[in-house]
């Protein structure tokens, strides 16, 4: 596994971030749209920009994300139904999420935002990569979907959007975040009382490192090299603890297993590689 580079943010001016590569002490300038310090590492922003063109190819490098919709859409939909957030008249119709406001944190090219919008949700998609958001905006327009895509970190966004959302979805992003606590705190801040947060991520285990990263990145070229930096992976109980610290009670935790051959995801009691969580914000917060 290649040693990942460490970046240190030293100055923030409008739209331009200057970073020092701690290994070589060189100055690197990254053009990006965030204006304040977020928790997303700039090296990863670069990686994702390379990917932008590949976002909507269901057989392309991101095919596991496309096929994961088969699990994560029901996770969000049934989670909200079970919490009683959804009027009975909408259950078992084509728009079960009608009127639900959903924040998709780390929405990328909109692979998850679009299906949520198609189910009737009013979706806001956040991402730090403007390139991916361009892809997302165009694709949504082509498909007649009204989705509000914004280039921002959730920390920044949360400041003006306190208690606005029925649900926050952070799917396959926590493993890219350095400051997990402030990230979760910001997500929680955006939620209405009794709102739901849905997270899917990679476990911090040998198996996850080996299979989730090494296999995926090196062997099968499913996700481009450098997408994951395994020191940021988090164990379920650690994540649960952070959620609790932010007034979020865990309702459900499931393992997810990916079949590399059939490109199919399934639920499992085995959480050692990928897992999903649903937590609910205290009613009086």
């Amino acid at each position: 596994m290649k040693k990942s580079k460490k970046w240190m943010t030293i100055d923030v001016s409008l739209n331009i971030r200057q970073l020092i590569d701690t290994n070589t002490n060189e100055f690197v300038t990254v053009f990006s749209l965030f204006s304040t310090v977020g928790t997303i590492d700039s090296e990863e922003v670069e990686n994702f920009q390379k990917l932008a063109a590949e976002w909507w190819n269901p057989c392309g490098p991101l095919k596991p994300l496309h096929s994961m919709n088969k699990l994560r859409i029901p996770l969000v939909r049934d989670g909200l139904i079970n919490e009683g957030c959804i009027a009975i008249v909408h259950v078992r119709t084509s728009t079960p999420l009608k009127g639900m406001s959903v924040l998709d944190v780390g929405c990328g090219g909109g692979i998850l935002s679009e299906p949520l919008a198609r189910l009737g949700a009013v979706v806001t998609g956040l991402d730090a990569t403007s390139n991916a958001l361009d892809v997302a905006r165009k694709h949504a327009k082509d498909n007649n979907l009204a989705i509000n895509y914004m280039c921002s970190s959730v920390e920044e966004f949360s400041q003006n959007n306190i208690g606005k959302f029925d649900a926050v979805v952070a799917s396959e992003v926590v493993e890219h975040v350095t400051e997990k606590a402030s990230f979760i705190a910001a997500c929680s801040k955006c939620l209405k009382p009794s709102g739901s947060i849905f997270i899917t991520t990679l476990n911090d285990t040998f198996l996850a490192h080996f299979l989730g990263v090494w296999m995926a990145e090196n062997m099968l070229s499913l996700v481009p090299r450098g997408t994951h930096q395994s020191e940021k992976f988090v164990k379920p109980h650690q994540l649960q603890r952070i959620l609790e610290d932010n007034g979020l009670r865990t309702k459900l935790m499931h393992g997810m297993i990916y079949n590399f051959v059939t490109n199919n995801w399934s639920w499992s009691s085995n959480r050692s590689i990928n897992y999903a969580m649903h937590a609910v914000k205290n009613a009086d917060l």
Partner: peptide, 12 residues
């Protein structure tokens, strides 16, 4: 498929 917001002709 539709309840999960997939296309009606989704091969999966």
């Amino acid at each position: 498929a539709v309840y999960s917001a997939s296309a009606i002709s989704n091969m999966d």
